[in-house]
């Protein structure tokens, strides 16, 4: 694994390995001294062309806990806003010696372009590109699901076989949904997408997931977890695409409230990638209930990103792939 661009690129074995490594990273985070010397002398650049506080901070924390030097480069207040291209920005960072570039970009495929253009020799980690992918989000979601839903004891080595997950909300515009559908499928879970038909992409029939337009019916099928997606209020306006008539109607049909929470199986958990629109896709009762693991997702995000950076950048990580290939052969 040279880059992490898409959840679809991960084999079952690679995905489980990342989750296992994240478990080891999480264990170190319970210690008083949280910092590991693993990536000392390596440079990680957070290249953010789109506003993001939590993902950037999560990657920054992960890199710093591994003792890497971190450079934060955000489009605002940088030469990007003066019209510098992705290419020139990447060449500049390359000249400064970036070992890894964590990129968030509004254009789908920008991390792919960066990784395959020759503009940078470092590892490229996709931290969210347009409506395409957000693979570390899917990994942290899978990590969270595995911790809660695959039985007692150390979950190392386990996948998500047999788990049933409903992903609810704006699937059309969601890179979180795309990443999760692919990774959850790789790990053996069954996915149902729940959304108004306007927020499901044409072409979804090729995805390894069921599609439902009825949240109550989906809850009746007793999913093990419900993953709520952020819905932007402006999507209802005609300028925003007119995807649904009103926020109220959306909340009535697709919001997770106390009633729907109560209808879920007792063991089922609620996830949300954040930031939440309380009162739109999720009510306060649901968001703050003990079954919501939303805050824990944030902590798990750091562990998962530590694991990804470690596997991409540590000497052993770079050679693991070839070793594993040999073993497989």
């Amino acid at each position: 694994m040279k880059h992490l661009l898409s959840a679809a690129d991960l084999s079952h074995k690679q995905a489980v390995r990342i989750l296992d490594t994240a478990g080891q990273m999480a264990a170190t985070q319970a210690r008083e001294i949280k910092k590991l010397p693993t990536l000392r002398g390596r440079t990680v650049v957070n290249l953010f062309f789109e506003d993001s506080t939590r993902t950037r901070i999560s990657f920054e924390t992960a890199a710093k806990r591994l003792s890497a030097d971190v450079i934060n480069f955000s489009a605002k207040g940088s030469s990007v806003s003066k019209g510098e291209s992705l290419k020139d920005t990447a060449l500049t960072l390359q000249a400064m010696g970036a070992d890894a570039v964590v990129i968030r970009h509004h254009a789908s495929g920008a991390p792919h372009t960066l990784a395959h253009s020759g503009w940078t020799h470092g590892a490229v980690v996709n931290a969210g590109d347009g409506m395409h992918q957000h693979p570390t989000q899917a990994l942290l979601d899978a990590y969270t699901l595995r911790r809660h839903l695959t039985g007692a004891g150390d979950p190392s080595g386990r996948d998500l076989a047999g788990l049933r997950v409903a992903i609810v909300g704006d699937v059309l515009h969601s890179r979180v949904a795309r990443s999760n559908v692919q990774l959850l499928h790789t790990l053996g879970a069954d996915v149902t997408l729940v959304a108004p038909p306007t927020l499901v992409p044409v072409g979804v029939e090729a995805w390894p997931a069921e599609v439902s337009y009825d949240l109550d019916a989906a809850i009746d099928t007793k999913p093990d977890a419900i993953m709520m997606l952020r819905v932007q209020r402006e999507r209802m306006s005609s300028a925003g695409g007119g995807f649904f008539p009103s926020p109220l109607e959306y909340t009535r049909n697709y919001g997770l409230d106390a009633r729907r929470l109560a209808a879920m199986p007792e063991h089922a958990i609620v996830l949300h990638p954040g930031p939440m629109n309380r009162g739109l896709e999720i009510s306060a009762e649901a968001a703050d209930s003990p079954r919501a693991v939303i805050v824990e997702q944030v902590a798990n995000g750091v562990a998962v990103r530590m694991a990804v950076l470690y596997l991409l950048l540590s000497g052993s990580g770079a050679t693991t792939e070839t070793n594993e290939t040999k073993v497989d052969a």
């Binding site: 495929g109 409506m131 890179r175 044409v202 090729a206 995805w207």
Partner: peptide, 18 residues
């Protein structure tokens, strides 16, 4: 719109040209 709207655009997250 960025590309033909269908299976590939749905996966790539590029706005579709139906």
């Amino acid at each position: 719109a960025q590309m033909h709207e269908g299976v590939v655009s749905a996966e790539l997250g590029l706005a579709g040209w139906p």
